[in-house]
Nucleic acid binder design. Structure first.
Lengths: 140, 140
DNA sequence: AGAAATTTGTCCGTATGTATC
DNA sequence: AGATACATACGGACAAATTTC
């Protein structure tokens, strides 16, 4: 059992797949992801690798893990019905790109990006705020 | 980017920094050090290098590692309230809270937050940028 | 109320492949 | 060539929070 990682590292492949399931609604907001032990079987990966993938999702604000419980999907990207929420506050708006975002996306400073913001609360305080930026859908 | 080690090897630099925190009381006696995974991020070092640094502290009697639990700071006294500095996961920096973040977190505008940024690429371009904000870990 | 099972958190040891000094 | 360091990945074990019986 060597260490291929030709092309993409395995943990990123797993993260991409799980992200897709969350964003597509296969795993709806607020639902638990499969346990780590289940994911190791499905992706034939070690637990460490699975955990690394999940950590990536947490960093993107797409997942929220609780000790002894599991990892919850967090609503984030495009919802098809902006009026419906399931306990997680998200919102979408347009913002002007700052210098760093402009550089990353290869656009001009001040150009408009779409920003999704989601707020995670713990108790009565705010634990985390995630802001996800994307290019506006290309119109032609 | 790898392997500068001008003068001192990285593992020794890390050991020096952690020793400083323990001896200065930043990490009080009996408290847990940040997890290996956290230290790899903070010091931008591989796990092997971090473990080597911690091993050095153990050798000096400054730290005490328990399997499955963590590494404790070990000074010359015993029994203090188990204090935890919670962790960090990827490349992070400190930023000043804008009005909205300040409102959400219940802090003052301009107060420092920890920002994690992750970039998802598609082909040559950037598909999305996620910025996740958290309060700075308060260790009291 | 208590024990067992589940699940996440952390550490241990090892391994392969690459890159730089 | 050797030492240092990186990223990736495996499997195992123990610890701790939560849920289930």
């Amino acid at each position: 059992m060597p260490t291929p990682h030709y092309g993409q590292p395995l943990y990123r492949v797993i993260a991409d797949e799980l992200r897709e399931r969350i964003e597509s609604g296969v795993i709806p907001p607020g639902a638990l992801l499969p346990a780590e032990s289940v994911l190791t079987v499905e992706f034939r990966a070690s637990r460490g690798t699975v955990r690394r993938a999940i950590a990536a999702l947490r960093n993107e604000g797409l997942a929220n893990t609780e000790h002894g419980r599991g990892t919850y999907a967090q609503a984030n990207s495009y919802d098809h019905d902006p009026n419906r929420c399931s306990g997680i506050e998200t919102r979408q708006r347009e913002v002007a790109a700052d210098a760093e975002l402009a550089d990353l996306f290869g656009i001009e400073v001040g150009a408009l990006l779409i920003e999704y913001e989601s707020v995670t609360r713990r108790g009565r305080g705010v634990e985390r705020v995630a802001r996800v930026y994307r290019l506006k859908p290309t119109c032609h």
